[in-house]
Design a protein around this nucleic acid. Sequence first.
DNA 1: GCATGTTTGTTAGTAAACCTTACGAACAAA
DNA 2: TTTGTTCGTAAGGTTTACTAACAAACATGC
Lengths: 394, 394
Amino acid sequence: MPQGNEQGRSHTNATAVAPRRAGRVLRPSVKVLPEHARRHNRSLVLQQVYRTSGLSRADIARQTGLTRVTVSDLVSELVAEGLVTELGQREDARPGKPATLLEMNLDAFHLIGLDLSDKSVFRAAILDLSGRVRERAEAQLDGATGELAIGRLMDLVAELVGRASRPLLGIGVGSPGIVDRGGVVRSAPNLRWAEVPLQSILAERFRLPVTVSNDANAAVLAEHSFGQSADDIILVQIGAGVGAGLIIDGSPVLGSHSAAGEIGHVVVGTDGGPLCACGKEGCLEVWVSVPHLTAQLLDAPTEAARTEVLTQAGQRLGIALAPVVGVLNLTEIVLSGPTELVAGTFAEATLNTIRQRTIAGIHGDLALRMTALSRDIVLRGAAVLVLSGQLGVS
Amino acid sequence: MPQGNEQGRSHTNATAVAPRRAGRVLRPSVKVLPEHARRHNRSLVLQQVYRTSGLSRADIARQTGLTRVTVSDLVSELVAEGLVTELGQREDARPGKPATLLEMNLDAFHLIGLDLSDKSVFRAAILDLSGRVRERAEAQLDGATGELAIGRLMDLVAELVGRASRPLLGIGVGSPGIVDRGGVVRSAPNLRWAEVPLQSILAERFRLPVTVSNDANAAVLAEHSFGQSADDIILVQIGAGVGAGLIIDGSPVLGSHSAAGEIGHVVVGTDGGPLCACGKEGCLEVWVSVPHLTAQLLDAPTEAARTEVLTQAGQRLGIALAPVVGVLNLTEIVLSGPTELVAGTFAEATLNTIRQRTIAGIHGDLALRMTALSRDIVLRGAAVLVLSGQLGVS
DNA sequence: GCATGTTTGTTAGTAAACCTTACGAACAAA
DNA sequence: TTTGTTCGTAAGGTTTACTAACAAACATGC
């Protein structure tokens, strides 16, 4: 009898196979059915309308390479679902039958975004399909952790679900700590969470699609979708700790143990440094985290000393990032954090340091900038998680 | 009139569109036709037979999730093309009709691999579909560069094409320098190549599919396919210079300017270092490249001094890799280079240094090893380029 | 004004791809 | 010998996107 395990590998099969030729971890290797192809094309069409309002069916056909017939078919499906609406006829004078312009209905669905990155408060919001925040809610943590924190989170989501004026597309969560591909928070020390299956918990409770990701990861998704950014970027979040989110070739990088971006405890430099809580000396976190910076700035008597503090910290970040920038051939670095600390002196020092330590810098096409998004960046990143997961749009 | 540019954007279209919502670089966003889906499934089936010889159609159906009917259809196509052959019936006694076992015909096609990474010689080979070298050829460069080197390369390929005993699937090339996605060698200083469209040149001359990639990139592909490696790895090649190839989530990383892996001129440490040819001080290359190492070892009077040299160099590599390992959450590092230099002391120092400087090390699941492949690694990587490009197998 | 040409979106029919259902062949076990 | 299992194939249906053709609605030139 087949044992009925997930691979459906009967013992018969196992006994018969010859030794593996090129052993490798199981690929995503999934079959593709016509239905999947259609979903892909549907997303493709939707993406065009999402990015550019006021396209006609014929425009979309030209842009995607699909025929007008197919596009019409897909569009009618989207119109039936309310995701796309007709905007009227094109005004400008030109030969031919006037085109019917299309528009994404940004209020067809709303979605819920959660930002759990703050130590003292869970932030939540209802967002529309453009990623704009429509309603807000917060839950003070007051030191709550573990189950208690999960309870606060549930109440918070329940409140927003109740306030929703449109059908909800799903829930997106940006959580601190390490979050695996299945939406399990493997470890989030601040919240004292370990192996918390946040995705399942939320999905079961609210019967909605749920996507959970690391907060820095969500942030970089927001930057990628809503900022004017390239397809290869790193976003460094400077807060209580230091984290990073990476997008390579348009796809988020999660890492083999879902711990990509955990840059805070990388040792920087070869000259020691302050002792870190993790036991090592000279971790990035003790150089550039907000608590460290503010403490140092308080000790700085003069403006020159303040500048020196920020310059040094910026340089440390640059030293840590240079190998990453070099190896990945990144051309865009985004910083997120308190503007008064991170923008200006600090950022310039980081950029200059990277330039001095890599070839990329020599080529001169390296850019470093502050995020264009406000502190809603994680919320909006959470929205991207839902949008790309449910609609294939971003 | 439409200007007929590649996007087929008529002026009419351009004038009509509203401002972009989420401006981003053009996605791969391509339509998917039923035909593409089939090609995908065909590769999926082939991949099973490639990895595991002696599977039946029913086995493949179970593993892929496709129905036996569909698998039969795809297999019959593969059999007709000669890629797959029937091996006879399964021997072991069990209920039911005995299965017909399948096998990949590794000699259905051969392919040509080229390794241009050596300063003094172009290496080439005919390989079978398993990536085994069947024939070899070399062309001494004798200092030839530029057009002359291209000429040598053409003659070399022509020779092998002539010696081929099977239809050729394609040509794969691992070239030094920076190679873009279109197979143009943007810059290879040793060969004095700049903007050499190697892919087009070879494709036009030999009328075969050609894939060109950076040599370190090819090497990491070989390691990924033929070594027992994870889906997130970095391979560091230590030779005249230092280069790296990266695979993240199973896909090679090329970088925004196709210069990913160019780690040789990243500055290591915060304590200066020897002056590098590139003008900076303390580049990785002046710490760990083969010429540097051998020179230092010659100066070392005692065995202890030799060990010290190798330890220091290994540490430098570790310092450079630590941030990369941390940020990407890599768990596997592969070294390629002269065993007598790189294996042992050097490699241990690198691993220990990374462990001491990252969290990944603390977790203890970080592995560093020498490549299991011989110096044919680039040749075999070139084969992977062709195999994955033409058959979707690896 | 009117014929001509262009563009849009739809209808009708076709080809491809995978599915479900069903069946004969070939075997083991009772 | 009967029963149940497994394999591979055949037949028929559904989905999908394509090509071909067309009516509607417009600009332009005579």
